[in-house]
Design a protein around this nucleic acid. Structure first.
Length: 530
RNA sequence: GGGCGGGUGGCGAAGAGGCUAACGCUGUGGUCUGCAAAAUCACCAUUCACCGGUUCGAAUCCGGUCCCGCCCUCCA
């Protein structure tokens, strides 16, 4: 299995420190607002890396931090007249709402800076003792010149750094490139006691300290966005390696950026899309699909049409899943396979193999998905010309579909949604009332009464008054049951060749986001936006 | 200015020396179907920014040119 290592600029064979174990650390967000789509990319990418490593039999320890002490948090808290740590805590909760929706598995540990001040002070003290850091008036700086390997990750020389004009100029530092390990407290800032007085950690030290604390002096994989390569990850290396004397990270992985109209999505340009807003418009699995349909190191240009395309493409895979479930049904009959069934399974295993090979090559999700689509077509065409009444055919589909489903779940691109949304309940009830009124106009009192009785049976009261009808319920009826009833009415209409009524039902549902598809054996429904 | 990465069909996106340039979306035609949808089958790049070179053979390697993005400052 190969991983592109930013440190060497090449794909390298993965050799973990301990066999069958991977320790990975991923830089998490600074929690001072809701995350945007750009922030979501590394979440999904590294979650997928983690899932695949597990799929390949590795035991993965996954750490993702929260930066909850930071200039931006302090600034925001001051603007909102609240406590910085409370603000950070609040946005950590908000973060989990979004991350959970996207199906991001929780890290084994989510350490926060504010809970590791003692460890950070100990590390800074050690760095000072070894001559890698110095104090200036309550501030501690890292002496970049003392670390010979400085610049090895970002590919720039120390001299280049020193001559760089854009580095923050601070007369008190020995060199312009030196960076803060500890910042002296300013009035009204969160601060902690230290040997150098009141203060707080600099940005970079937290990751060196927390990564080594939980994963050891050398870790297997460290991930993050490409913009963290310099200075953040460069500085993490300088700190950790100077302190421990050991190589800090074996494999550095960095995801590419999301752009909008070919410009980087960023706060300063104002072209960012808050993930919460996108989640309101598109299902989480569509967003997840979109984010890994392109290789993780490539740039990704965003606009609404891309999500729409992702929705349709993923819909194809979901349709196959639906079709296989219909085809197999629940009977666990196992039978000898036919020649065609054997061929199906053989090809399925081939595609599974190819899927794994693609993922083994630096997590090529784009290529791996290509094989998923091929598997999808394979299954669909098998089902199209086989008879589902044949146990052998069902057995073959069942076995192949299990593999299909497993690969989908490695990528995390199927997230089952909760169908019992009140919005749909009300919409279906309204449709039933409309249908009932239509029946009454047509003097089909048998139907109109049947509808009312059925609704009463579901504990929904129907009230007729001069302005029309309305419904009331205390306990929400289930979407499934309502739909089942509506579809039964439609089947009855079709049987009586009342196509106008049947089509009225279908059109009405479609306008409200539920699509009906007639098949030889009945009807199936699905959400239009899924 | 320095450091990375990239330009592949109408669109998105794989491929990194040699099988018909994956896969998805869109489009066209056929099958199925009360109609619709879904599914299925077929078709849709002699060509991979441009110009040279290496090679029996180049999207793929080398040199040059033109564009584009990112980093060098907080940023995923």
């Amino acid at each position: 299995m190969k991983i592109y290592n930013t440190l060497s600029g090449k794909k390298e064979e993965l050799q973990t420190l301990k066999p069958h174990r991977v320790n990975m650390y991923v830089c998490g967000p600074t929690t001072y607002n809701l995350i945007h789509l750009g922030n979501a990319r590394p979440l999904v990418v590294f979650d997928t890396v983690r899932r695949y490593l597990k799929h390949r039999g590795y035991e993965v320890t996954y750490i993702q931090n929260f930066t909850d002490v930071d200039d931006k948090i302090i600034k925001r808290a001051w603007e909102e007249q609240t406590d910085p740590l409370e603000l950070a805590s609040h946005y950590i909760e908000e973060y989990f709402i979004d991350a959970d929706a996207l199906g991001i598995d929780r890290a084994d540990i989510h350490p926060r800076v504010s809970q590791h001040i003692e460890d950070i002070i100990a590390t800074i003290t050690g760095l000072m003792e070894k001559g890698y850091a110095y104090e200036v008036d309550g501030n501690i700086y890292y002496r970049v010149r003392a670390f010979a390997d400085y610049g090895k990750l970002s590919g720039r020389s120390v001299e280049e750094m020193f001559s760089g004009a854009r580095v923050e100029v601070d007369e008190r530092k020995e060199e312009p490139a030196d960076f803060a390990l500890w910042k002296k407290a300013k009035p009204n800032e969160p601060s902690w006691h230290s040997p150098w007085g009141e203060g707080r950690p600099g940005w970079h030290i937290e990751c060196s300290v927390m990564a080594t604390k939980y994963l050891g002096e050398t870790i297997d994989i460290h991930g993050g966005g490409a913009d963290l390569i310099f200075p953040h990850h460069e500085n993490e290396i300088a700190q950790a390696e100077a302190y421990t004397g050991q190589p800090f990270v074996k494999y550095w992985m960095h995801n590419g950026f999301i752009t909008v109209n070919s410009e980087k999505m960023s706060k300063s340009l104002g072209n960012f899309f808050v993930l919460r807003d996108i989640l309101a418009k598109y299902p989480a699995d569509v967003i997840r699909y979109y984010l890994i349909a392109t290789h993780y190191r490539s740039p990704l240009d965003f606009d609404d049409s891309k999500l729409e395309e992702a929705r349709k493409a993923l819909g194809r895979l979901k349709t196959t899943l639906t079709l296989t479930r219909e085809f197999v049904d629940d009977e666990p009959e196992i039978t000898e396979l036919t020649v065609a069934g054997k061929a199906l399974l053989e090809k399925t295993h081939e595609l599974e193999q190819k899927f794994n090979e693609a993922m083994d090559d630096d997590f090529n999700t784009a290529m791996a998905m290509g094989f998923l689509f091929e598997l999808s077509r394979l299954l669909n065409s098998f089902m199209a010309d086989q008879d589902r009444r044949e146990p052998a055919a069902r057995t073959a589909v069942k076995n192949a579909a299990e593999i299909f489903m497993e690969l989908l779940s490695v990528l995390g691109i199927i997230i089952e949604r909760d169908t019992n949304d009140e919005q749909y309940v009300n919409l279906l009830l309204k449709l039933l009332l409309d249908l009932r009124n239509l029946a009454r106009q047509e003097k089909d009192y048998a139907l109109s009464d049947a509808v009312r009785d059925r609704l009463n049976g579901l504990n929904v009261k129907v009230e007729d008054n001069p302005e029309g009808s309305r419904f009331r319920y205390e306990v929400s009826p289930a979407v499934d049951e309502l739909l089942e009833y509506i579809l039964a009415i439609r089947q009855e209409s079709k049987a009586q060749r009342q196509y106008a009524r049947a089509d009225w039902i279908r059109d009405n549902l479609q306008e409200n986001g539920i699509i009906l598809e007639d098949t030889r054996e009945g009807v199936r429904w699905k959400f239009a936006d899924a």
